[in-house]
Amino acid sequence: MADGKGGLTRKQMLVGGGALVVGGGAAAAIAIATRDGDGEGGYPRAKVAQRGDLQVGKTVEFEYPLEGQKNMLLDMGEAVPGGVGDNSSLVAYSIVCQHMGCPVGYEEQEKHFMCPCHQTLYDPAREGYVIQGVAQRPLPRVQLEVDGDDIIAVGVEGLIFGYRDNLAPGEKVA
């Protein structure tokens, strides 16, 4: 536990080289190594689209960070929280429902994701949060960078349904 603002307790020690050691009472510490990898924290950097290919309101599906992990990229057409690009309008989310894992679909007219299994609605213009429905967490957000014409996925915030760790087990896409 923290002992105050910003300080670490003696339970939490840092070992040089990025490994993190956490003490648990009198028991042995659990060592966690930061991962190797190209992206921060081990996430791959993967190009998912060209800017020219994007149309406002139309989705681009891509897999990231592992093969089989499906996501959608969207140009919302206006600035939205978490959006990148010239207009801060590009966002991408995992499209596996956080409730019980059904693939969600994007409804163009209503501008939301809907899960056909139990009807959860998620809002891509509001950080993937639930509009209404049974899911208890927002859709994990794929972190994007714009590099010239390239839209690049560089990480994921939130745990993808079905996994204990977004990066394992499986093959990275890049």
């Binding site: 670490l8 990025g18 993190l20 930061t34 921060e40 924290g41 996430y43 957000r141 915030e157």
Partner: peptide
């Protein structure tokens, strides 16, 4: 910006946030 990418810096050393947590 680094914090939004799942890594934080404490005392000059990088720590990976658990992958399933958002800093927010």
């Amino acid at each position: 910006r680094k914090q939004t990418l799942g890594v934080i810096t404490v005392a000059g050393v990088s720590i990976a946030l658990p992958k399933f947590l958002k800093p927010s």
